[in-house]
Design a protein around this nucleic acid. Structure first.
Lengths: 184, 184
DNA sequence: CAAATCATGTAACCCGTTACATGATTCT
DNA sequence: AGAATCATGTAACGGGTTACATGATTTG
């Protein structure tokens, strides 16, 4: 019975119209032109998604005078839903299968989470990454000799990528810590 | 009219049963236990996919004596389809939106592509990455000051990730070049 | 013998893709 | 005036998720 929860595309839309109210077309353009990646900008994706969000009461639309243009903005419930999603604890499975979504979340945190919540996001992200990388390296030590060459090399690329993310985490944490100090 | 082309999951399955014939359950276990990522191992995914591949004539199954177990292997057409997919030229959109699929392809190249085809894969991958990273860095220079802090940081992580992939490409190319020399 | 694992399937649901369609507004 | 872009939608289709369901075989 628990209400169907929004997809990550839905959250991307919520995040965008939280930054500023937009039309469906405006959202499409963002997905088309910015690196805010992966998400399809086709009308068959965006307009039905907006309809869903309307039905869930997470967005509202103000039709502008003349008629055609529909500008969407978040409802209170919508902002809460977005905030909830942003504040969710990270799990290892997120790291394994939903890395992109984690960065989508990070990208929308600006003014919706407290500094301490952001720090917690980054520290648990870092800890889970460290742990996961260790698992991968252990697997690599034990199994890599049985893997075909290309499989092994692809696997090594995976490890390198996670390490890059870990570096980024640590760098960003340092930046935030410094910023926190300067504010005192 | 052009026949529906297989999904990347389909190709993952083809690649696996090319390595060695497997049962549906065997395939599920691979997706469940190895880092061979993302792909769902649920029966509702795998068995229908195998049915599709059967209908396309890309795989065949030998039911083992007793009955229940069905071992799938590639047909000639299946091997050709797999090879074709592996040998496809890389496009920039692949890099933007289908990085995972590129590595899936790489991971299955072992004995299906020639050394020169592998080298071409890596060199065009490298060239496209270099070009794309340049685009991203240009965008970063021009636009980053207008981006919210978190958006900018997430974007920078994206760039760092592509650079890691580029490094990997270059390292792997060197390795292959060295190997080629040793074989003369 | 009970529990875990091996092994295969079906059915409802829904999101995203693709293609089609229309009209207003702006630019050249 | 014609072209490009702005702007919004619908409809068919299909693949993946989730949940349900069953039975054989192996392990403790």
């Amino acid at each position: 019975m628990t209400k169907k929860q929004p997809t990550s595309l839905d959250y991307a839309i919520l995040g965008l119209i939280h930054q500023e109210p937009r039309t469906g077309y405006g959202i499409r353009k963002v997905f088309e032109t910015t690196a805010l990646g992966n998400y399809s900008s086709s009308p068959g994706t965006i307009y039905p998604a907006l309809k869903r969000l309307l039905k869930l009461g997470l967005v509202e639309s103000k039709p502008t005078k003349a008629g055609k243009k529909n500008v969407f903005h978040l409802t209170v419930a919508g902002e809460k839903a977005l905030q909830n999603w942003l504040a969710q604890p990270i799990l290892q499975t997120d790291i394994e299968k939903k890395n992109d979504e984690l960065f989508l979340r990070f990208a929308f945190m600006d003014d919706l989470l407290s500094q301490s919540q952001k720090m917690e996001f980054l520290t648990t992200f870092r800890d889970l990454l460290q742990n996961y990388i260790q698992q991968l390296e252990h697997y690599h030590q034990v199994e890599s000799s049985h893997l075909p060459l290309h499989g092994r090399l692809a696997f090594e690329h995976g490890i390198a990528t996670y390490k890059t993310t870990l570096d980024w985490c640590e760098k960003t944490l340092q930046l935030f810590t410094k910023m926190g100090k300067n504010e005192n």
